[in-house]
Nucleic acid binder design. Structure first.
Lengths: 205, 205
DNA sequence: TACACTATATTAACATTGTTTATTTTTTTA
DNA sequence: TAAAAAAATAAACAATGTTAATATAGTGTA
C-alpha cells in the first residue's frame, strides 16, 4: 500500500516528467532545461530538485518512457501478424517510424544522452537492447523454422541494430534522399539487405 | 601572393585550431570551450573572436580537418593494394580504426555537431560523404569487373555507411562485446554482411 | 484553537560557458 | 615621435545548472 506522501510525491514527479516529455517531443533536446520544464510543470525551477537529483535523472526517465513507448508501438504495428521475417520487418519499420515521428526523441536517445553517465544505468544500454528485444521473437521463430542458424540470427540482429541507427542518424540530419517516401524505400532495401534477402534476388534491379 | 597580414592571420587561426584539435583528441568534445582553447593557444578568450565568428566556426574547421585526416589514413592503410573488395574492406576498417583511436573525434563528428547549423555547410553532409568517397573507387572497380550492378553498388555503399555509423556508435559507448579484438571480428563480419558476402558462405558457421 | 515543528516551495545566489562591448596595449604610419 | 589603426584583453551580460537560505504551507499536539 502506498502512503499519501508516496502518492503525492509520485504525482509531483509525474508533472515534471510529463512537462519534460512534452518539450522533448515538441521542441527537442536543445529546448530542455530546468527552467523550461519547471515552468511548464507549474513550479519554480528549484522545486524540480526536490524530486530529482538533477536534470540528468529526469532526462533518463524520459528516455526510459520513450523506449517503452517505441516498444509498445512496435507491438501495436505488428499485432496479429504471423511471427517470422515479414513481422520482423514490420517491427523494425515501426522503430524507424517512431523515431522519424519524433526526431527530438531520437536525438535525445541516440545522440545527446547516450553516455552521460551519472545515471547508474546507461541510457546507451537500453537503446542497445531495444532493437534486440523487438527483433528477438521473430528471429527465434526463423531459427526454429530452420531458415537461419543461431549465429546467423546474431549477425542479422547486429546488422539490423547498426543499420537502423545509421539510417536514422543520416535521415534525421536531412541527408538521406530527401522525402519520407524515398527514405522508406531505402529502409525496405536496407532491412532486406541486413536480413540477407537482397542477394537472393538480384534480378529485382 | 599573400600579404603579411594574411599570413599572420592564418597563423593566429592556426594556433586556435591546433589547440582545439588537441583538446578534442585528448579530452573530447565536452572539454572544448572558448576559454580552454584560448588558454591553450596562449591568448585571452576574447581574442578567439577576432579570428572566428564563434566557437561553432572553429569546431567546424576541426571536423573538416579530422575528416581529411581520416581520408588520408584510409589511403595510407590501403596503399599499394589491388583495387576491389579486399581493398574496400581495408579502407572501411581504416575508418573504424581512425575513430576508435579518437573517440572524441567520433563523438564530435557523428554526435555532437552534426546538425548544429550556423556553419553554412553542414557537418553532417561531410560525414555522409566520407564513407562514400572512401568506398567509391573500389565499388567502381567491382562494377567494372561485373561483380555487382550499379544499383547493388549503391545499396552496398549505403549499407557500409549505415553499419559503420551504427557500429561505432555502439562500440564507443562501450556496448559492443567488450574488447577491441572481439569488436574487430564483428566489424569484419558486418562488413561482409553489408557487402553481401556472408550469405554466399553460410557453411562457415 | 494556537503554537511549534516539519515538509515543501521559492527566492537569492553562485559557477560555468558563450558572446559582446569597452578599454588598453601594441603596431603602423605619416 | 605622435596620431591613427589594429590587435588583445578585461569587464560585463545572458543563459543554464545547481545549491543555500528563506518563506510558506501543512500537521500534530497542548
Amino acid at each position: 500500500m502506498v502512503s499519501n506522501k508516496e502518492l503525492q510525491e509520485k504525482r509531483m514527479r509525474g508533472y515534471f516528467i510529463e512537462a519534460a516529455k512534452e518539450i522533448l517531443k515538441g521542441e527537442g533536446v536543445k529546448a530542455l532545461n530546468v527552467r523550461a520544464v519547471s515552468e511548464r510543470a507549474g513550479y519554480s525551477f528549484a522545486t524540480l530538485y526536490n524530486y530529482f537529483k538533477d536534470l540528468n535523472e529526469l532526462t533518463f526517465i524520459c528516455v526510459q518512457d520513450f523506449l517503452d513507448e517505441c516498444d509498445a508501438f512496435a507491438d501495436a504495428q505488428s499485432l496479429g501478424r504471423i511471427i517470422g521475417v515479414e513481422r520482423l520487418k514490420i517491427r523494425m519499420k515501426a522503430v524507424i517510424n517512431y523515431f522519424t515521428q519524433y526526431p527530438g526523441i531520437f536525438e535525445l536517445c541516440f545522440v545527446e544522452k547516450m553516455n552521460d553517465l551519472g545515471s547508474r544505468q546507461s541510457t546507451g544500454r537500453m537503446i542497445f537492447d531495444l532493437t534486440d528485444k523487438i527483433a528477438s521473437d521473430d528471429l527465434g521463430a526463423m531459427i526454429a523454422d530452420g531458415l537461419i542458424s543461431d549465429s546467423q540470427a546474431k549477425i542479422i540482429g547486429m546488422s539490423l541494430r547498426n543499420s537502423i541507427a545509421g539510417m536514422l542518424i543520416f535521415y534525421l540530419n536531412r541527408l538521406q534522399p530527401a522525402d519520407y517516401k524515398e527514405f522508406m524505400k531505402i529502409v525496405e532495401n536496407q532491412l532486406d539487405s541486413a536480413i540477407g534477402l537482397n542477394e537472393i534476388s538480384p534480378d529485382q534491379i
